[in-house]
């Protein structure tokens, strides 16, 4: 079955992010397809490569990037939500005249249409938020 995952919250503040990750991992282990993981609201902060959690804690960004690489996941960060919150890729940083970008490997920035498309294409949309 084809799942789409919507992540509405940022890392470390809300468990929603952890549950979303565990759900995604479990679905893949069961042989399901993950059509897309879409990050919205503060969820976009899952995709910053600049997070440095203490060594004895999970690294939420790295965990997504690694799962993404292993399973060729489409990890999409909403552009409107990302711009508000200061998450940029190289192109956006250039376009906005900012001095750096912070998007993590495996993530891409795109529009809200990607969420709608995920809702249309996937068999199930599962939302994790606050």
């Amino acid at each position: 079955m084809k799942f789409a995952i919507l992540v509405n919250e940022g890392p470390y503040t809300h468990q929603a992010v952890d549950t979303a990750y565990q759900f995604t991992k479990a679905a893949l282990e069961k042989g399901h397809e993950i059509f897309r993981v879409f990050f919205y609201h503060d969820g976009v902060n899952n995709g910053t490569r600049l997070m440095v959690p203490p060594q004895d804690d999970r690294n939420i960004q790295k965990r997504w990037s690694e799962l993404g690489e292993k399973h060729k996941l489409d990890l999409v960060v909403c552009i409107a939500a990302a711009q508000r919150r200061g998450l940029l890729d190289e192109n956006e940083a250039k376009r906005q005249g900012k001095d750096g970008n912070n998007i993590a490997p495996g993530f891409r920035i795109s529009g809200l249409g990607q969420l709608i498309e995920a809702g249309i294409q996937a068999d199930r949309l599962v939302t994790f938020g606050d």
């Binding site: 079955m1 799942f3 509405n8 565990q22 759900f23 991992k25 479990a26 679905a27 282990e29 069961k30 399901h32 068999d123 199930r124 949309l125 599962v126 939302t127 994790f128 938020g129 606050d130």
Partner: peptide
């Protein structure tokens, strides 16, 4: 249920509604 059971429940039901 564990996370795998959560996945099964989501697959068994045609829609999933999160009460956030």
């Amino acid at each position: 249920v564990d996370y795998a059971g959560f996945v099964d429940l989501a697959a068994e039901h045609p829609t999933v509604q999160a009460w956030l």
